[in-house]
Amino acid sequence: MAQIAASPLLCSASAPAWAAPWDAWDAWKSRFLGDDGRVVDDGGMGISHSEGQGYGLLLAQAFGDRNAFEAIEAWTTRHLLIRQETLMAWRWELERGVTDWRTATDGDLFRAWALLRASRDSGWDAASAEPIARDIAALCVAPDPRAPGEPLLLPGAESRRDGLRVTVNPSYIMGRALRELGEAAQSPILVRAADHGETVLGELAAAGFVPDWIDVTTSGFAAPADHDLRAGYDALRVPLYLVWSGRRDHPAVARGVEALMPSDDATGIAVTRDAGGIVTEHSDLPGYRALLSLAACADVSVAPQEMNSQPYYPATLHLLALIAKREGASC
């Protein structure tokens, strides 16, 4: 049985144009993927988490790498599927195993989407995404306190939610994944969560600030009770997911470009801003620059050495931006 399958991503360009991305994927695997399928976050003291396994699975599918896909899914199944439903435990550590059994919705969302794409687009014999999609719909969606008929995507199954206050992570709103999973699982609430989530992103952008975390209350947005109010490494993903979802025209994309632009006296990307919009941290890592290029309609490229010059998170975002450029809204 062939182990490297063609994918829409690889077929969308000539072989020479894809030599560098393919080599970059190999470099990413060499640094961050163990032979057993564990994705290692070297910026997080070598831990593994559901986000990394979900991202790794999606990358393997997009690059047509069935060996890596099956290894990642096998490790995930053995080590993170310890709950009664199909959602993953969030954190795993060497010699300790699972150290946080709670869920993180972005990891589950990307794992389910990768499984759906593998079966639907790559023709691989992958586990069904539908039970995961149904569990996300049942456990990780809550009514918007301002409009109870509208669903908000929660950051996890255990996240703060009640009729008066709901905690939201705007960077977990990946509309394309939610819509495709909602359609596949016949779960209209996921499609509605994508639509309403993008509305919320538009409201935040209009207010001038798309943060990492925000609480939605009966009277509007409020500083998150359990997190600092800032726009940082989480919020960087908002324009990435919107462009990937075909929403390049969304106001949060333009707001994302503004937020990423460096201060006058700095050369790196503005990766963190405080609640007043003041830049508190810059970075010149190419993965973060790729996000700005994607949002600003500039070229997105990747070289293998760039996987060796940056930690897990920006390196992974770099490859995801490349895929979004191929699959998302054109300029």
Rank of each mutant, 00 (worst) to 15 (best):
A15Y: 10
A15Q: 12
A17K: 00
A20V: 05
S30R: 15
V40C: 07
D41H: 09
G44M: 01
H49P: 05
H49Q: 10
E51T: 12
G52H: 15
Y55A: 01
A60W: 08
Q61H: 14
A62P: 01
E85D: 15
L87V: 14
L94Y: 06
T99Q: 04
W101P: 05
D106G: 02
D108S: 03
W113T: 01
A114P: 06
D125R: 06
A129H: 03
P131E: 14
I132R: 06
A133M: 05
A137W: 08
A142T: 11
P143A: 15
A147S: 15
L154D: 08
S159P: 01
R161S: 11
Y172I: 08
M174T: 06
G182Y: 07
G182E: 04
A184M: 09
V191W: 11
A193F: 02
L201Y: 00
F209T: 05
F209Y: 03
W213C: 02
F221T: 03
P224M: 05
D226G: 08
H227F: 15
D228A: 14
L242E: 07
R255M: 11
V257M: 00
A270G: 02
E281L: 09
G287I: 11
G287Q: 10
S293A: 09
A303W: 11
Q310F: 13
E327N: 11
